[in-house]
């Protein structure tokens, strides 16, 4: 199994700055996209990605190619980083939640792209974290189910179940936007 990152990981672990820059350039955009959708906030997503790279540097010198695909390891670290951050968040009291204004879009409203994106992003954030992670890995990373399951540390069947429930739930949350999302 050829790992396109193995060389650069080994070189970065030996102090090769150019190899580190290549790894950063190659993986930052997608890591940031997944982290942003997992955590909801841009600044927190950037912090998470930064932590992931710091972990990468400390492990790079000891990286053993062939044991696991580097990208699988990288996304597993990233997901764990996101889970940790989500669990550290203080839970809002129920009374405060009731005071939040309902600013969801009425079915007949006209939407610009920004509003539509925000609505979809919010619906995604409302999903349970594992369902969200499964959907994000398969959609944004365009990973097959086997690799996504490996990243999440679950069986392929468990991943398929998470995907099915997550998609059904997301679809029902976005039912009122059906006309804007398009019928395909």
């Amino acid at each position: 199994m050829h790992d396109p990152d193995a060389d650069d990981v080994a070189k970065a672990g030996q102090g090769d700055r150019a190899a580190a820059a290549r790894l950063i350039g190659r993986h930052t955009p997608k890591l940031l996209t997944v982290a942003r959708r997992m955590l909801g906030a841009q600044a927190e997503a950037e912090d998470a990605v930064q932590e992931v790279f710091l972990k990468l540097w400390t492990h790079a010198a000891r990286w053993q190619p062939g044991k696991a695909r580097f990208e699988t390891w990288l996304y597993r670290v990233m997901l764990n980083q996101c889970y940790d951050r989500l669990r550290r968040r203080p839970t809002a009291p129920l009374e405060a939640a009731e005071e939040v204004a309902d600013d969801s879009v009425p079915p007949d409203a006209r939407l610009d792209e920004g509003v539509l994106g925000r609505e979809i992003g919010r619906a995604l954030e409302d999903l349970p974290e594992r369902q969200r992670a499964a959907i994000l890995l398969c959609h944004f990373r365009e990973l097959g189910n086997i690799e996504a399951a490996e990243i999440m540390g679950i069986s392929v069947e468990a991943l398929e179940s998470l995907l099915a429930r997550g998609r059904r739930s997301l679809k029902s949350r976005l039912e009122h936007l059906k006309g804007f999302v398009g019928d395909g």
Partner: peptide, 18 residues
């Protein structure tokens, strides 16, 4: 469900790094 979710997620803007 999958097609709908894929279409919906394509509407999400890609985050731009600061």
């Amino acid at each position: 469900d999958r097609d709908f979710v894929d279409r919906a997620l394509r509407q999400l803007p890609r985050p731009i790094p600061s």
